[in-house]
Simulated assay, not measured.
Amino acid sequence: MEYRRLGRSGLKVSALSLGSWLTFGNQITDKVADELMGIAYDAGVNFFDNAEGYAGGRSEIVMGKILAAKKWDRESFVVSSKVFFGAEPKGPNRVGLSRKHVIEACNAALKRLQVDYLDLYFCHRPDKETPIEETVWAMNTLLQQGKILYWGTSEWSAGEIMQAIVVAKQYNLIGPTMEQPQYNLLERDKMEKDYLLLFEEHGLGTTIWSPLASGVLSGKYTSGAAKNTRMDMKGMEWLKEAALTESRLKKAKGLQDYADKLNIPIAKLALAWCLKNPNVSTVILGASKTEQLKQNLTALEAVPLLTDKVMEKIDKIMGTKPGWSPF
Rank of each mutant, 00 (worst) to 15 (best):
A164L: 08
A158I: 09
K12W: 11
K90I: 13
K193Y: 10
C106Y: 01
A287W: 00
L185I: 12
E200W: 09
G56I: 06
R125M: 14
H124F: 11
I264E: 00
S325V: 10
A105D: 08
L198S: 05
P278S: 13
L255Q: 02
S157I: 08
A213H: 14
L97M: 14
R112V: 03
G19V: 08
K251H: 11
M139Q: 04
G96V: 08
K234C: 03
L306Y: 03
S218E: 07
F77I: 10
L143P: 01
A87N: 12
G64Q: 03
W238F: 15
Q27E: 15
L6K: 01
Q256Y: 09
K261L: 14
Q163S: 15
R112M: 08
G159L: 10
D194H: 07
D232M: 13
Q114A: 09
K65G: 15
R94G: 12
T290L: 12
P89I: 13
D119Y: 04
G215K: 01
R94T: 15
P326N: 13
L275C: 02
A242P: 07
P326E: 12
M162Q: 11
N263A: 15
S98N: 11
F85E: 04
E155K: 05
Y258L: 06
G25R: 01
I39D: 09
K128I: 15
E179G: 07
L198Q: 03
A225E: 15
A40Q: 06
G152F: 02
A105F: 03
S325G: 10
P92E: 11
A138C: 10
P278I: 10
W156S: 01
E104V: 06
K268I: 08
L217G: 01
L18W: 06
H124T: 04
L197M: 09
L212I: 11
R99S: 15
K12D: 12
G254R: 04
P265N: 10
A40N: 10
E200G: 08
G224R: 05
G146N: 11
E2M: 00
Y3V: 01
E246Y: 09
L118M: 13
